[in-house]
């Protein structure tokens, strides 16, 4: 039996007995931990938002609400009270993203799609069942987890997220830096896009 036949056989067996694969994943999940920017089951956070798009700055308050089933709802409101957009993220539903409202000024496919991907990276919640790659810089170690080959999550040894990188066709799309300060929510989230002049900084208020 050559190498190819062994791979083919194991693939066919896994198709016949998918429960075996699930059991293996389940055991590994037990050993791993959940990677999440917002690990609390349900919560509400208020952030100061600064969006800089091609030299134009939009500021406001970003309200984030997480529900126990893992869905998120966000709304960006200007300091003077005008709602700029409201979005919903439902990872377990058929329609995982809903744009509830957006002012005409911002309601463009590119903007919505970019914001969607940024927040999906932040709201993603998964069990790290694979062994992480370890990066060493001096005395500091970083643990890198990969999600579906597109998103890289960097943690410290305590499991606190410090950076997220989203890739497309192998190229970095955006880098998200997270400051936690030992809180169960980030003190600051900074999103820096690599190919468009767009940056978003979220600073925790309450």
């Amino acid at each position: 039996m050559d190498k190819f036949q062994i791979i083919l056989l194991s693939f066919v067996l896994s198709l016949i007995n998918p429960f075996g694969v699930q059991a293996r994943a389940h055991n590994l999940q037990k050993e791993g931990f959940t990677i999440a920017v917002f690990p609390q089951k349900s919560a509400r956070y208020l952030y100061r938002a600064k969006i800089n798009f091609r030299g134009k700055e939009i500021t406001g308050l970003l309200l984030i609400r997480k529900k126990p089933e893992g869905s998120y709802r966000i709304a960006l409101v200007t300091e003077m009270g005008l709602k700029l957009f409201e979005m919903g993220f439902y990872p377990n539903k058929k329609k995982p993203f809903v744009l509830y409202s957006c002012i005409k000024y911002m309601n463009k496919k590119v903007i919505i799609s970019t914001l969607r991907k940024d927040f999906e990276s932040i709201f993603l919640n998964f069990s790290a069942w694979k062994k992480p790659k370890i990066h060493q810089k001096g005395n500091q170690y970083k643990y890198r987890y990969c999600y579906q080959g597109k998103r890289l999550y960097f943690c410290n040894k305590y499991g606190d997220l410090s950076k997220i990188i989203r890739k497309r066709w192998g190229f970095k799309q955006e880098i998200i830096k997270i400051k936690n300060s030992k809180n169960p929510y980030p003190q600051e989230i900074a999103i820096e896009h690599q190919h468009i002049t767009l940056s978003i900084i979220l600073t925790f208020i309450k």
Partner: peptide
């Protein structure tokens, strides 16, 4: 006092 009432959030942001 500025109150932002978000109906779906059942939330009021007060400034």
């Amino acid at each position: 006092t500025q109150e932002k009432h978000l109906s779906m959030f059942k939330e009021v942001i007060t400034s």
